[in-house]
């Protein structure tokens, strides 16, 4: 049995997205949340590359992916900076102590 490259990539995309969302729903650690976001973006990036390949515009797909990487890196940096400040000001990275704003 052979599995084509597109199918493999689709499974990977779905897997990454699924794991990412599952992690966001369940984790209680801020760093893990940021990691989960990274997984999600990687999944989306793969999808873009695959779309480029499927439509015969691989270069376009790849350039999209590279742009996403740049944006995504900035998100990660801001996220980590926030995490550092959270640790400094609130004293913990546990999401359960980030619930003062509600109702």
């Amino acid at each position: 049995m052979t599995i084509s490259i597109p199918t493999t990539v689709i499974i990977m995309v779905l897997g990454l997205i699924g794991i990412g969302i599952y992690a966001l729903l369940t984790t209680r650690h801020l760093i893990k949340v940021i990691v989960a976001l990274q997984l999600l973006v990687k999944g989306a990036m793969l999808a873009l590359v695959l779309a480029g390949r499927l439509t015969g515009q691989e270069e376009l797909g790849q350039s999209l992916a590279i742009t996403v990487i740049i944006a995504d890196t900035i998100v990660a940096v801001i996220g980590m900076a926030l995490a550092v400040q959270v640790r400094r000001v609130i004293g913990t990275l546990d999401l359960r102590s980030l619930t003062s704003l509600r109702r």
């Binding site: 966001l24 729903l25 369940t26 619930t99 509600r102 109702r103």
Partner: peptide, 17 residues
């Protein structure tokens, strides 16, 4: 209705899904 604003990130993500 105010109790739906839990302030918990995972609930917020759950609403989104």
């Amino acid at each position: 209705l105010r109790s739906t604003q839990t302030g918990m990130l995972s609930w917020n993500v759950a609403y989104l899904v």
